[in-house]
Design a protein around this nucleic acid. Structure first.
Length: 106
DNA sequence: CCTATGACCGAAC
DNA sequence: GGTTCGGCCATAG
């Protein structure tokens, strides 16, 4: 018999990813962060784990740094070692203020 | 493919 | 308490 399309159509990797709207990783990260309830925080590492890449905390930070969507509460993502991490919408100071206003005890 | 970058992590000092 | 260093990993060029 003719084995027609056994495998994937494979269409130049990168494009197929872009068609999906974004890279799986970035998209997943955004989804996770968007889901963090008010009043709680999650570390970069935790977000990475939830996204399926436990060791990609740094990459998560990268994703956050590039993100400017107000729909994503990136201020609720903090460091694992107690630090706040950065914030591209006003710096750590602003970040802490927002978290405090949400009832998060640092 | 290879290099550089970064809102990280954890251990070491 | 702090700083430094190596590892880690996705993205951009």
């Amino acid at each position: 018999m003719l084995k027609q399309h056994q495998h994937r159509p494979l269409q130049t990797s990168k494009q197929s990813l872009l068609i999906n709207s974004m890279t799986n990783f970035t998209d997943k990260v955004r989804g996770v962060v968007k889901n963090i309830p008010k009043g709680s925080v999650m570390t970069y590492k935790e977000v990475a784990t939830h996204a399926g890449h436990p060791k990609a905390a740094r990459a998560v930070a990268n994703t956050m740094a590039k993100n400017f969507d107000v729909k994503i509460p990136c201020h609720r993502v903090i460091r694992s070692d107690g630090g706040l991490g950065g914030y591209n919408r006003g710096g750590e100071k602003k970040k802490r203020a927002i978290l405090k206003s949400e009832g998060v005890t640092l």
